[in-house]
């Protein structure tokens, strides 16, 4: 097989090494772990967005709403089950409930809104923006407008000291979850027939249909998987902040779009790479030049797009 272009993969180590040159090792290690953890959280929330765009050419501006939904579901699960179940098991239950709710609502959303505007990008943008507003207001009706606490379990609190650096337990756990989800997605896409169909349909929907496969059914499955991932990402974001507001998804939507654009729209590998890049850059810049922190993501996107207009790891063109 033709080797892939290694340059995009070298960006991360180059950035990390450049940061190491200008700070102490413990500070670098703390920031690097925090950056990778933030990258994993971003990936969890953004992977569904890139999958949905890649396969369906739908930029779902309501994606953030599914992130918020996941977070609220986690609150309800914790409030309901906290006395009976504790620790990581409770988090696992919250994640499962959020993912199922995200998938089910995603199926409804696809049926009611997305399917009506297939192939009409402008209408898709308008209808998904409208959907985002409806979803956010519905969540406020159900859970209220006030911030709700979502405390982390005891065993995900505190830090471990490694090589003189304090590394938060929760961030280490998030890295574990992010890597597992990425590996599962990558393996599904690379090794299974379903993944093969998704990759092929991302490239050329019409040809996949001409080979006898109903791509619209595949779309529904991928849309539900994408919104389930968004809800999962919502749980992880909410546990990080230990608080849920109805604005959670809307607040990170721009960051999610920046991530999938940097990675290459439709590319899961690119999304993971871009999420790590955004996470690391945010943490390093926030530490070294706090005044620049607000513009880091936009600047990063600008630089990447000037270098690679289709993103770091774009999907193949037909």
């Amino acid at each position: 097989m033709r080797p892939r272009d290694p340059l995009p993969y070298l960006v991360l180590p180059a950035l990390a090494l450049a940061a190491l040159a200008v700070m102490s090792f413990p500070a670098w290690l703390t920031l690097t772990v925090a950056g990778i953890a933030m990258g994993c959280m971003l990936f969890l929330a953004a992977s569904g967005l890139t999958l949905i765009f890649g396969l369906m050419d739908v930029l779902n501006f309501a994606h953030g709403g599914f992130v918020t939904l996941g977070a609220f579901i986690a609150v309800s699960v914790v409030v309901t089950w906290a006395p009976a179940i504790g620790g990581v098991a409770l988090v696992a239950l919250a994640v499962l409930a959020a993912a199922v709710a995200g998938a089910l609502l995603g199926l409804v959303f696809e049926r009611v809104l997305i399917r009506r505007v297939a192939g009409a990008p402008l209408r898709q943008i308008l209808i998904t923006m409208g959907g985002a507003i409806i979803l956010q207001q519905a969540l406020i009706v159900l859970w209220g407008a006030e911030p709700l606490p979502l405390p982390r379990p005891e065993n995900l609190r505190g830090s471990v000291i490694f090589a003189g650096a304090a590394l938060e337990r929760y961030r280490l756990a998030v890295i574990g979850v992010g890597v597992v989800v990425f590996a599962a997605l990558a393996l599904t896409l690379k090794r299974t027939r379903l993944g093969l169909l998704v990759r092929a349909a991302v490239e050329n929907r019409e040809m996949v249909e001409s080979l006898g496969f109903h791509v619209d059914r595949l779309f529904r499955l991928v849309f539900a998987a994408g919104t389930a991932l968004a809800a999962l990402g919502g749980v992880v974001w909410a546990l990080h902040a230990e608080m849920v507001t109805a604005d959670l998804g809307a607040d990170i939507t721009i960051l999610l779009f920046i991530t999938v654009i940097i990675g290459g729209l439709g590319s899961v590998g690119g999304c993971f790479l871009a999420a790590l890049l955004v996470g690391l850059a945010d943490n390093y810049v926030g530490f070294l030049a706090p005044k620049l922190a607000l513009g880091t993501d936009i600047l990063l996107m600008l630089i990447v797009l000037l270098w690679r207009p289709r993103g770091l790891l774009p999907v193949a063109e037909p």
């Binding site: 093969l196 990759r199 092929a200 991302v202 490239e203 050329n204 019409e206 040809m207 001409s210 999907v315 193949a316 063109e317 037909p318």
Partner: peptide, 8 residues
């Protein structure tokens, strides 16, 4: 256009 999947 042959319909070959270039990325596969």
């Amino acid at each position: 256009n042959m319909g070959v999947f270039s990325g596969l």
